[in-house]
Amino acid sequence: MKLTLKIWRQSGPNDKGQIVTYPIDNIEGNMSFLDMMDVLNEELIMKGDDPVAFDHDCREGICGMCSLFINGEAHGPDRAVTTCQLHMRKFSDGETIYIEPWRAKAFPVVKDLVVDRSAFDRVMAAGGFVSVNTSGNTVDANAIPISKINADKAFEAATCIGCGACVASCVNASAMLFVSAKVSQLALLPQGKVEATERVLNMVRTMDEEGFGNCTNTGACAVECPKEISLDNIARMNREYFKAMLTSE
């Protein structure tokens, strides 16, 4: 397979950056998108050029490290996959592929296709946890009965890997799907109810402070999410926030 790659190159956070075109050959359909990037980088290194920087880690779709805005969509044209799970058979011979970093004020570019997603970490630190007594009398989490429906919903929300595809896809660069998944995951469980009010207020405040946009319910996030996190979570967070806004002191 012969392809033309149009890749965003940016030497550092303060560089202006530009799209650079790279022709590439001998790409097979059973390669993953990241394998293809590796092939390109080997060629660049052999030529003495600077390889393209991109994020990756587990390469099996569970770590949330890989990103890439491929041909106008987060994680490429396939659904419910991360970039490392995207196969080159999804593209046709001779195709031109645009590869860009996530674009958001809250996700500044570090180099080439690598962005700084620590804004998500700060949102998590603001409330994405439950406080547990660890002074020797820790209660087994499974000792508390939880309805099957809520356990499943919480689990589904917890499958969010925090890759940032929701922010990248949103026309407003809003982080509502990510934050709502994290709020939902805990709000649905008895252990999370204790801190529910402060959690949603603090996480949303941090989300706003980090410079993410506002949700306009376009639904793009849920379509592009590799873990198919549902818009139900955003509605749940809206309910949680309403409750918290009216009842917090």
Binding site: K6, W8, I19, F69, N71, G72, E73, P77, Y98, E100, R103, A104, K105, A106, S169, V171, N172, A173, S174, G211, F212, G213, N214, T216, N217, T218, G219, A220, V223, E224
Partner: peptide, 27 residues
């Protein structure tokens, strides 16, 4: 809200296939 949303993405994508995931009215 619209001004804030514009500010949240200072650099636009060179290629953005938004029609694949949302309605034009919603955007």
């Amino acid at each position: 809200l619209a001004f804030q949303n514009k500010k949240a993405r200072p650099i636009q994508y060179a290629m953005n296939k938004a029609s694949a995931n949302s309605s034009s009215a919603s955007r």
